[in-house]
């Protein structure tokens, strides 16, 4: 995450794995004006840009619960399973994840390799 205050008052979120950047408006667990909604981790959030209503939020990413790396919620960068894990940590501790997740990741890896080759 970078606080790019020199040019604009806008705060920018940057994923340290894929480089995705986007301005964010709120960091925390309780997005403003959402009443009953609580997040289970501290997140970088912005107003959902693809939705006309003002109150709809979009979670961009958060910090990995193990290494604190700032990662986006993209499936290639992080995984949430009761806590946020960056992909590097997930791979490091893959064996501790439930079987379902392991299978899913293996499948994904396969298909992405197929796409590359």
């Amino acid at each position: 995450m970078e606080h790019n205050t020199t040019e604009t008052p806008q705060k920018t979120f940057t994923c340290q794995l894929c480089g995705l950047t986007s301005p964010f408006t709120y960091y925390g667990q309780k997005p403003p004006n959402t009443r009953a909604i609580v997040l289970l981790e501290e997140c970088f959030m912005t107003k959902d840009p693809f939705c006309p209503e003002k109150e709809k939020f979009l979670v961009l990413g958060s910090n990995c619960s193990l290494c604190s790396m700032c990662v986006c919620v993209g499936l290639d960068c992080s995984l949430f399973y009761t806590k946020r894990f960056c992909m590097q940590c997930v791979n490091k501790h893959l064996d501790q994840f439930p079987h379902q997740i392991q299978a899913e990741l293996a499948k994904k890896r396969q298909s992405s390799q197929a796409a590359v080759s």
């Binding site: 995984l79 949430f80 399973y81």
Partner: peptide
């Protein structure tokens, strides 16, 4: 126990 619910980082409670 695996539960898909654990993969969601949102909760709703009133």
């Amino acid at each position: 126990d695996y539960d898909a619910r654990y993969r969601i980082n949102v909760s709703v409670c009133t």
